[in-house]
């Protein structure tokens, strides 16, 4: 039992095997628009995989396939070897998706947002749930936010509450959709550290969707870049620093050229 391939539960000493994700020839169309085109890659158990790509390239749609919110037009997504499209997979593998906008329950307090999952799944008594929720809030330095409602939170706090809510599920697989967008640099760094800590201490397999090059280089063990629905890059941090494809290089560090602006190039 090697430590790194097991997910440690943050609330007890229980270890469950870390899960891997396999995306096999995944294509997805909405009507006539093909959003994902034959995407294949693998995420190893216990690693942090960062998925980059411009807006509208299909990153969120891809994450939704992993949790079964979208069904593939063709191809397959396997989570821990099981079909992600099947209802049972959600019961067998604990996956948590941290939505881009948080998707907090607006009618519930922060505390009740976190307590909803354990209450609905009846894991433990109310006192145990309380302990778990307070611990998750503490991990994300949200101790004082328990009684607040989502509408009273700042952007950074919403993101952290969304992560805390995911954490209470004791996930084996964490998916983060742009966890640092719209945040100031310090808060972005904090979130990146949280993601790395969760992986380091609890060995949660993590897939992070991000535009943030600094975050990617700091915590990403492997990186994929999605452009126009195709996976154009797959490699580690070192390979990302020296990309061969000029399109990738331009995406990672776009040069601002006032003399020859991009919006004029698009016209021709």
């Amino acid at each position: 039992m090697s430590e790194s391939t097991h997910t440690t539960n943050p609330f007890s000493a229980v270890q469950t095997p870390a899960v891997g994700v396999k995306i096999q020839h995944l294509s997805k169309s909405f009507g006539t628009v093909e959003v994902l085109k034959d995407v294949s890659f693998e995420v190893q158990p216990g690693e942090i995989f960062v998925l980059m790509g411009p807006s509208g390239s299909g990153k969120s749609v891809l994450l939704k396939h992993i949790v079964g919110l979208e069904l593939p037009t063709s191809g397959q997504v396997l989570v821990d070897g099981k079909d992600a499209a099947a209802e049972e997979t959600r019961e067998q593998v604990r996956m948590a998706l941290v939505f881009q906008a948080g998707a907090l329950f607006n009618s519930l307090s922060v505390y009740d947002n976190l307590a909803l999952y354990p209450r609905e799944h009846r894991v433990g008594k109310e006192s145990e749930i309380r302990e778990k929720v307070m611990r998750a809030l503490q991990i994300l330095s949200l101790d004082n936010a328990a009684a607040k409602f989502p509408s009273e939170l700042s952007g950074g706090m919403r993101k952290r509450v969304a992560i805390a809510r995911a954490l209470v599920m004791e996930p084996q697989l964490m998916l983060y959709d742009e966890p640092t967008s719209e945040l100031d640099p310090v808060m972005s760094a904090t979130i990146a550290e949280i993601i790395a800590t969760l992986k380091e201490e609890y060995h949660v397999t993590s897939i992070v969707v991000s535009h943030d090059r600094d975050l990617t280089l700091a915590i990403g063990e492997r990186v994929g870049i999605l452009m126009g629905g195709k996976l154009l890059f797959l490699g580690n941090g070192a390979e990302l620093r020296a990309p061969k494809d000029p399109k990738i290089a331009d995406f990672l560090s776009p040069k601002i050229d006032v003399k020859n602006p991009r919006f004029r190039q698009l016209e021709t």
Binding site: L69, L116, H121
Partner: peptide, 13 residues
């Protein structure tokens, strides 16, 4: 619209 329903589904509720 604000994906709370999606969130419930990913939470298996």
């Amino acid at each position: 619209v604000y994906q709370e329903i999606d969130a419930l589904e990913t939470m298996n509720i």
